[in-house]
């Protein structure tokens, strides 16, 4: 394998794993549910995205043909991650979980019941 390809692959693999780790760290470390939601939805999608790009390059270089089906997984994650985050946020608002957030006081209808 070409040395430049190997450096690129190593970088992508470590960056992806680091993002996955930071996402879970956010999940563990932050204090209320709404802020915890941010870690996994963002850091993890990019983390898995980096790993999938690395996998695509690796199998294209070592295999006999271009390998692009990893794109499907990242595409799927990019579509589904926001949907599940949105649904979980909605469920949390419905259960009236306490939030550390400051409320902007306009529009009564969309405002959740604030219990600080």
């Amino acid at each position: 394998m070409n040395i430049f390809v190997e450096i690129l692959l190593s970088f992508l693999v470590i960056a992806g794993a680091a993002f996955a780790f930071i996402g879970s760290l956010g999940l563990y470390r932050l204090r209320d549910f709404y802020t915890r939601l941010h870690g996994p939805t963002k850091a993890t999608t990019l983390g898995v995205g980096c790993l999938l790009v690395a996998s695509s390059i690796f199998f294209s270089v070592t295999g006999e043909a271009l390998s692009l089906h990893e794109i499907l997984v990242s595409l799927f994650l990019f579509i589904t991650a926001p949907v599940s985050a949105h649904l979980l946020a909605k469920a949390a608002l419905h259960r009236q979980l306490p939030s550390l957030a400051v409320m902007q006081n306009n529009d009564r209808e969309t405002k959740p019941e604030h219990s600080a």
Binding site: A17, L37, P40, T44, L51, S55, V73, S84, L88, L97
Partner: peptide, 26 residues
Amino acid sequence: PDATDRILALDTLSINAIALLVLLGI
């Protein structure tokens, strides 16, 4: 502490599992 936190943790675990499988594949 709430059920939503646990669901979020399960979701994160499944995404981590994907990452692990991709790494194992490489």
